[in-house]
Every structure is written in C-alpha cells, then in structure tokens.
C-alpha cells in the first residue's frame, strides 16, 4: 500500500480496476439501517457511508478486485459496468484514504 507524504495511506491508484481491496485489518464498524460508520485503526476520524457507498463497502468484506465489484454492483442495479465504474473507483479511493479499506495488491504497479 503506498503511503503519502503525511504518512497516511495514499489512495492514488487504489481504485485501479485490477487492485484487490479488503476491509482494513482492525477497522471498527457500526451499522445502522441506512448507513455504515467505520473507523480505521489509525484514522483520526470515522467515515460515514450511505447509499451506494454501503454497497461498495459490503462488497469488500473479503478481498475482491475493484473491477469485479463494479461488475457486481452493475448487475445488482441493472446498469452497465461503465455506468457504475466511476462511482466504485471513487468510493474505493475515498475509503482507502480514510484508512478503512486496505489494498492487498495494487493494480497501478
């Protein structure tokens, strides 16, 4: 996992389609009927996920390729992969940056 100048996880490249991503080890989670709140082991703040971001979060409970998750989300929504791919990639970058997702293998390398 690349680390930025500030010592925090660097999400650049984390959302590449070939990256394999999973919930960060030690992440703490609370689930409500409408959202997920997650706190990374070293993160200063928790992140709140709603709507589509919850779907993306759940998809990475076990290690998964970003491209495969985008395909799954597209099927679940009855949409094309192209239509959801940008959203999934952006969500993964955000969650890696927040320290709640962990990149197992980086597709950018």
């Amino acid at each position: 996992m690349p680390v930025g100048d500030d010592g925090r996880p660097d999400p650049r490249g984390a959302g590449e389609h070939d990256s394999t991503v999973v919930h960060a080890p030690g992440v703490l989670v609370r689930r409500t009927p409408w959202s997920v709140v997650a706190l990374g082991p070293d993160a200063p703040e928790a992140v709140v996920l709603r709507d589509g971001a919850v779907e993306v979060w759940d998809a990475f409970a076990t290690p998964a390729r970003v491209a495969d998750v985008a395909a799954r989300v597209a099927t679940a929504r009855g949409a094309t992969v192209a239509a959801v791919s940008g959203e999934v990639v952006e969500a993964v970058r955000r969650l890696v940056g927040a320290g709640v997702l962990h990149v197992v293998t980086d597709g950018a390398r």
């Binding site: 703490l28 989670v29 609370r30 409500t32 709140v37 706190l39 082991p41 928790a46 709140v48």
Partner: peptide, 17 residues
Amino acid sequence: ARRVHEDALARDLRLER
C-alpha cells in the same frame, strides 16, 4: 436525528478503539 446518531457512533468507535 440520523446525522446526530452517526456522530455519536463515530465517538463510540473512537472510544472502542
């Protein structure tokens, strides 16, 4: 209420950590 609850949960998680 939902946002206040999410704030409370964020604090719970910091305490849990």
